[in-house]
Design a binder for these strands. Structure first.
Lengths: 347, 347
DNA sequence: AACCATACCCAAAGCGCTTTGGAAGCCATT
DNA sequence: AATGGCTTCCAAAGCGCTTTGGGTATGGTT
């Protein structure tokens, strides 16, 4: 069933039917009702492709997932993020198109999406420090919205980010308040902008408490259980081991916990752990009462809201870019406690 | 730059340029080369939409993700699966479109995708026992491929699955060989087809070893760390606790390990654990040597291969459906060992 | 010299929609 | 009775591509 058939069946022109269906005013209430009823009854759905051709709009948003050899981006956060974004698209009649691409020709993909007019805009995932994509997308005139921020960037752009600096400063402050002085940071890859900001929040708190920044207490790697475990195992093996850990991800934190327990220590008593928690649907930080003390912010909500910002930017190209920064919630779980007295474990 | 402009620039007709670019034989090698060079140089990319309109093909594959209130499907497996499928699409000039939809109007979405001619086919994720989608898609004439199988279904369909029955029977057999008799199953939701098959593999092994099936040793829930932990904690608290666990997912297994360690027991010595491992890129089962003994099969490879099957089915509608069953690899890690003697822990 | 393949190429229709630029009908004003 | 302003509708062009149904040289055969 297409427009032509529908209009013939109704004895109207395609113009009128199209207008009735799209809410234009040039059609009487009576005919509009009649048209809408007929459309529903004969299960008429306009072809997205034809519509797109005619209007010049794709009614689709692209998500480009760089798939480095390091796999960093096919990450657990992604599933929840697009679930959130998908809600927004569904509500607004947009489609989500996904491109998995290896880093080498990321440029290519964006250019190609633009030239083929395949999407009306894109979401930029996993921004790195000084990320070149901002400049690229601005240059080719593709509307975009960034999940995160881009340090050193001077161009204006739409983004949504959690306040990573604040979250990690708060977490570090909290540990200081509990009496900890040697606090380790198990960070994500610091080429990623979010990891850079988290570290700077951590360092700011250290400075504020007059504690020297000790590179030996900081690790930066992909946020996997195994790497969290290995980092913590090494750190706990040192003579001057930390009494607390701050983790960039719940997954790393699981690894850290394993290393702690493996040494016969008790998390929350001998060693404290705070983690950032993206509130992933399948990896929850306990039930009612959280296991880990955490800074948390739902990545799914982030997806929903950033998609809204992007659609807004597409529909109002002249408005200034929307910038959203979400504060994390700080929740206290069982993984933190007062710093142990030095003699207790022979430190 | 569009076809018209390109052809004018070349002094050729649109027909010839189109044919040259699409590899039709009616054009001389010389002009073809000339056209291709010009296309590359002026960065010509045909509009997918226009192409689709003209050919009647969408050049896109749909992935519909049912987003139940239980979040089961926005699951960690999904990210890797689509990364794999994406590789196939990229190689074949297809786009992947994702629809997040809540279960109530899943029908709607499939019908709508069909009527709007938005995709050439769909991948069915997370098939349930007796899944109604097979019948629906067959009825509306939408090509599809299932990630998994559908028990009780009689219609022919294209699918790819791991041999879940075999994998879990093998795992259970292995534990019997180590002397275990009380083996718990921490399964996924048994409305899901894969979980049903895993359980039947487990039960088959039990029967083969003359051990009664004990419902008290079997749990079925979403595969989260917390639920894995709680199940194991409860089971280990019983007077007649299991000496071994089989988990449906590495994430559950992490929870099981936590419960084991919390009781001061040692995994691989006091209690054995085998898990199924989807080889997710961000959640690996150790490095060189696996932590958990596991049945494993890359879900990413599954994505790549199932997408190939679907494209094949689309291009050769009359061929019989491709059915692929992948055997799992069985790897031995540190999480399994001989069953402890009864008196050791007061069992 | 006339004929026929063969190799190249083209004009135009069509895919399903939106949108421009009217036209027709109707009523109230002058 | 002519004018003008609404309301309601329509024919046709156009979005960028593919594909049908040709046409025109070119060169080899009789």
């Amino acid at each position: 069933m297409n427009l032509k058939q529908l209009s013939e069946q109704l004895g109207l022109s395609q113009t009128t039917v199209s207008r009735a269906l799209n809410g234009y005013p040039e059609v009487s209430a009576a005919t509009r009702l009649r048209v809408e009823a007929a459309a529903k009854e004969s299960n008429y759905h306009p072809s997205t492709r034809a519509k797109g051709l005619a209007t010049g709009r794709a009614l689709a948003i692209g998500h480009v997932i760089p798939m480095s050899t390091k796999h960093e981006m096919v990450n657990p956060v992604f599933g929840d993020f697009i679930a959130g974004a998908g809600e927004t698209y569904a509500r607004n009649g947009y489609e989500m198109i996904l491109s998995i691409v290896d880093d080498s020709n990321e440029d290519q993909i964006y250019r190609s999406l633009k030239l083929r007019r395949a999407v009306d805009g894109v979401i930029v995932h996993g921004p790195r420090i000084d990320d070149p994509r901002i400049a690229l997308l601005s240059e080719i005139g593709m509307p975009f919205a960034v999940h995160g921020q881009v340090t050193h960037n001077v161009l204006p752009y739409t983004f949504l980010d959690v306040d990573n600096h604040d979250a990690f400063a708060t977490a570090t402050d909290y540990l200081f308040d509990l009496g900890h002085r040697r606090i380790a940071l198990i960070n994500g890859l610091e080429t990623m902008d979010f990891a850079y900001r988290r570290r700077s929040g951590y360092e700011a708190s250290l400075r504020a408490h007059g504690v020297a920044i000790d590179p030996a207490l900081m690790r930066s790697s992909e946020m996997t259980e195994v790497l969290g475990y290995e980092s913590a195992r090494d750190l706990l093996g040192n003579s001057n081991a930390p009494t607390a850990f701050i983790c960039a991800s719940l997954i790393s934190a699981l690894g850290v916990r394993r290393a702690i327990e493996e040494r016969g220590l008790v998390m929350g008593k001998d060693v404290s752990v705070i983690t950032h928690d993206d509130m992933l649907s399948y990896l929850q930080n306990g039930g009612e009462t959280p296991i880990f003390t955490a800074t948390r912010s739902s990545v799914r909500t982030a997806g929903r809201r950033l998609a809204e910002s992007l659609l807004h930017a597409i529909e109002h190209p002249n408005n200034p870019p929307q910038e959203t920064i979400l504060k994390c919630e700080f929740v206290v779980g069982h993984s933190t406690g007062p710093a142990p007295r030095k003699d207790e474990h022979g430190f």
